[in-house]
Amino acid sequence: MAVDTAVDHGAEAAGPGSNIHPMDQFIVTPLFGEGEVAWYTLTNVTLWMAITVLCIFALLVLGTRGRAIVPTRTQSVAELAYGFVYKMVEDVTGREGLKYFPYIMTLFMFIVFANFLGLLPMAFTTTSHIAVTAVLALAVFITVTVIGFVKNGSAFLGLFWVSSAPLALRPVLAIIELISYFVRPVSHSIRLAGNLMAGHAVIKVFAGFAISAVIAPLSILAITAVYGLEVLVAFIQAYVFTILTCVYLKDALHPHH
């Protein structure tokens, strides 16, 4: 009994006659065999997150094992990353924020490496998934809220009470501030996932156009340009995610406007 797949669901959904599958690159598949993706299954997510960890290990642990006073090339890159995040935390949150520096450094290193690794051809971009970025953003949101209440007690609610505004406006502003506070994790996570998803999907769409030999050169040019932009976006989004984390942390440590 011969069984073969006659219909590709994705192709149909993308429109009649189209064989561009811009979203197929984000499909989570098991590494070994077929079947359900259970929570413990080894998938391409597992593989690329493991590669991310290995890269971070190589840069920050193996790269600095010489502990040289005059650094090697790898060590100076590691020191650059350390100094970059350290200065960011210190500048935005002040000295008392430095206690949370390892946490913010973890976020930054994970996002920046996942973004750059996702730019490799055939790679899977873990940070393009809402599930991943939502966990990152929710972790930041919950941590920051808890820190705010632990450090300031009920004074943390002063974040929503804009004391510099006229008294009549304050309740309205308080509602707006409250809503914007709870929208933070949404925009925080969707910004990162959306940027990466958009860039990768655009590259895939242009790659699909290359089927026609006439358009192919144009399409390759466009892919090159978008790829360059994506390299920039990969870093900037990691930077933005990290600096927003710092800003939220600053709000938790100093809730007064």
Binding site: A13, R191, G194, V247
Partner: peptide
């Protein structure tokens, strides 16, 4: 960069709506 990120996030939201409608 924070300002750009805030402005861009809203564009990403509309892009997301487009994607949701498509797929």
């Amino acid at each position: 960069f924070i300002g750009i990120a805030f402005a861009e996030a809203l564009g990403i939201f509309s892009f997301l709506v487009a994607l949701l409608l498509m797929f």
